[in-house]
Simulated scan of single mutants.
Amino acid sequence: MSAVTGAWHWLTTKSHWTGSDGVVHRLVEHLYFSGVSLGIALVIALPMAVTLGHFGKGGGLAVNVSNIGRAVPTFAVLTLLLVAIGSGSDWPVIISLVLFAVPPLITNAYVGMREADRDVVEAARGMGMTGSQLLFRIELPLAFPLIWTGIRSAAVQVVATATLAAMAGFGGLGRIITAGFNRQITAQVVAGAALVAVLALLVEGVFLALQRLLDPMRRRNRPGAKPLSGVLNP
């Protein structure tokens, strides 16, 4: 039996989907780690990056620091946090994933804000818009595509990287893979890897659909929508 056939047989066996070690339970754990970590990273990174991008100060340092953070191995951070905090809570996994998610969020949000069409921004400023009006009505809509790309990238990376939590004894879909290795069941290893890959692709698709739905500039370009010039001349 090939690995692919064996993995399909493993995935289509009902007993592998139920119980504390089943796919459903591990999927819920995986989504919990990913969702909480991404949410915390968004709260930390976006306000800071958007503010720095709006004022154009200190962003270069923030981006450089976040880029350095990309080079730090997530599993190494997880191991250190596990030693420092212990395995009695989920915080070692959550903190390590937050640190992994913050760099693309900061970089994309800051660059998106700074690359907003300066002619439009200056025209809005010349029209007498306040700082908050300029931020929420002009800069953020223009920067949205790049900001959302950072969010989408962070979400997919976190979902994929959360698999490492299993190597430190935590839950998630990675536990299916590590259990397969421990039992020398290749089909289970392949099945677990396939589940993580499919979940990452689904997350990518969901965030792409949300981008089309939420993009304020796309809505303005629809027939009958108020153009950007209408924002500058309400």
Score class of each variant (00 low, 15 high):
155 A>T: 07
211 Q>K: 07
203 V>C: 00
118 R>H: 11
212 R>H: 14
61 L>I: 15
42 L>T: 01
213 L>M: 13
151 I>Q: 05
165 A>L: 11
16 H>E: 12
8 W>Q: 08
34 S>T: 03
63 V>G: 03
163 T>K: 03
64 N>T: 10
105 L>W: 04
230 G>D: 12
79 T>H: 04
48 M>Y: 13
111 V>K: 03
82 L>Q: 06
31 L>D: 00
189 V>D: 04
80 L>I: 09
199 L>W: 00
76 A>T: 02
11 L>P: 08
222 R>A: 15
202 L>Y: 01
57 K>I: 14
70 R>W: 09
128 G>K: 14
26 R>C: 06
117 D>G: 05
32 Y>P: 01
5 T>R: 14
180 G>L: 09
142 L>I: 11
207 F>P: 05
7 A>L: 12
51 T>H: 12
99 L>R: 02
90 D>I: 13
179 A>Y: 11
117 D>K: 09
120 V>S: 05
154 A>K: 02
207 F>V: 01
98 V>A: 11
210 L>M: 13
167 M>A: 14
118 R>F: 04
23 V>K: 07
7 A>E: 04
186 T>K: 07
195 L>M: 09
171 G>M: 02
139 E>Q: 15
201 L>T: 07
40 I>H: 03
233 N>W: 13
170 F>D: 07
30 H>A: 11
122 E>F: 04
131 G>H: 11
32 Y>F: 15
107 T>L: 07
151 I>C: 07
15 S>H: 11
123 A>P: 03
212 R>W: 09
102 V>H: 01
135 L>N: 07
213 L>H: 15
58 G>Y: 03
90 D>V: 13
231 V>P: 07
20 S>G: 08
77 V>I: 07
19 G>Q: 12
220 R>D: 03
217 M>E: 15
77 V>W: 01
60 G>R: 06
97 L>Q: 08
146 L>E: 09
197 A>F: 10
74 T>R: 01
187 A>W: 01
61 L>T: 15
144 F>T: 07
179 A>R: 13
222 R>M: 13
73 P>Y: 04
78 L>S: 06
26 R>Q: 13
145 P>I: 09
151 I>L: 11
88 G>L: 10
14 K>L: 15
178 T>W: 05
1 M>Q: 12
48 M>D: 06
92 P>M: 02
209 A>E: 06
155 A>H: 06
230 G>S: 11
104 P>W: 05
63 V>R: 06
224 G>N: 06
135 L>P: 08
190 V>R: 00
154 A>G: 02
181 F>G: 00
207 F>N: 04
141 P>M: 10
23 V>S: 03
21 D>I: 03
136 F>S: 14
76 A>H: 02
138 I>Q: 02
229 S>A: 14
19 G>N: 11
177 I>V: 13
51 T>P: 01
11 L>N: 07
67 N>G: 00
45 A>G: 13
74 T>C: 02
95 I>W: 04
41 A>V: 00
118 R>D: 11
189 V>A: 08
193 A>S: 14
29 E>M: 06
18 T>L: 14
99 L>T: 00
132 S>Y: 08
73 P>C: 03
177 I>S: 04
1 M>G: 15
166 A>K: 06
194 A>Q: 05
130 T>P: 09
71 A>N: 00
86 G>C: 08
166 A>D: 03
191 A>L: 01
183 R>H: 14
92 P>C: 08
49 A>P: 04
16 H>Q: 13
